[in-house]
Nucleic acid binder design. Structure first.
Lengths: 139, 139
DNA sequence: ATCCTAACTTAGACTATGTCTAAACTAAGA
DNA sequence: TCTTAGTTTAGACATAGTCTAAGTTAGGAT
């Protein structure tokens, strides 16, 4: 049973078969898929599912705050079902592998007042880069 | 005289009129333009400049390490001529205004060893989000 | 100076990613 | 059953960026 589906239902969101398949595809993964990858995987269970429904559904889940949209390099956005708790991302510069990570402290605190240019700063996300164990071995 | 042009020349890079215009357009700005914006502005000085040359030139300058490519939300990449010293970005969630900022300390130090999953972590960039003074007033 | 070659530039075709539209379908209440 | 709002669909459209093939240019060799 998908916990994401439960959370979505609380928003009085109609849980159609299409939306259920998309939510379960997202949540069942430990990597962050692109919309096209989600379409491809969801179509294995529901072949008539359309591209537009996948894009619409992902955008709506982002708007509801139940999943995160990640804009990283490479061309396409990726979707992270883990919107619950603060986390950052660690990306391998060799192969593109991505991991969720947790940093100590709040990065907002590391930004001095005179660097804020009058902004109210509400959040911060950190993208760490390096080489994963496999790519270190290959180098 | 463009300092970026000087740095590019050191890479034995042929400085053509097109490349000079692109470099000077980049460097003259305090905002980070998209490739299309650079094309548009550079064309004011050199109307026959082609889109392909702008994209090629920007990609080559990124590969040489002389400018930074920023992948932020919104659909297009932006280019930052200030590759020299470490800095992060602060973005207004209201209007999209972006500022370069400097945080205290090195974010790599805030990532505990057991959160590194065996990666060698070489760098980190922080994206701060909030509301600029104008958007606070409007809210 | 002229030739040669490699580097550079160009227009436009092509690809990838994502949005929009209009029509059809579905579910729930009157 | 009828109505209505919400949902889904195919495909057209939009945008960002890359590729290709041909033409141009710069600079070294003769």
């Amino acid at each position: 049973m998908s916990d994401l589906v439960t959370r979505l239902r609380r928003h009085n969101w109609r849980i159609t078969p299409q939306r259920r398949v998309i939510a379960e595809t997202l949540e069942g993964s430990h990597v962050h898929y692109t919309a096209e990858e989600i379409l491809e995987r969801a179509c294995e269970r529901m072949p008539e599912l359309s591209r537009a429904t996948v894009y619409n559904t992902l955008n709506e889940m982002v708007a509801l705050g139940e999943i995160l949209e990640l804009t990283l390099e490479g061309r396409s956005k990726r979707y992270d079902p883990n919107a619950d708790h603060e986390h950052h991302h660690l990306i391998c510069e060799g192969c593109g592998l991505m991991k969720d990570v947790h940093a100590v402290g709040n990065p907002v605190d590391w930004l001095p007042g005179d660097e804020r240019h009058g902004f109210t700063v509400t959040r911060a996300s950190i993208t760490y880069r390096g080489l994963c164990p496999e790519c270190q071995a290959a180098a």
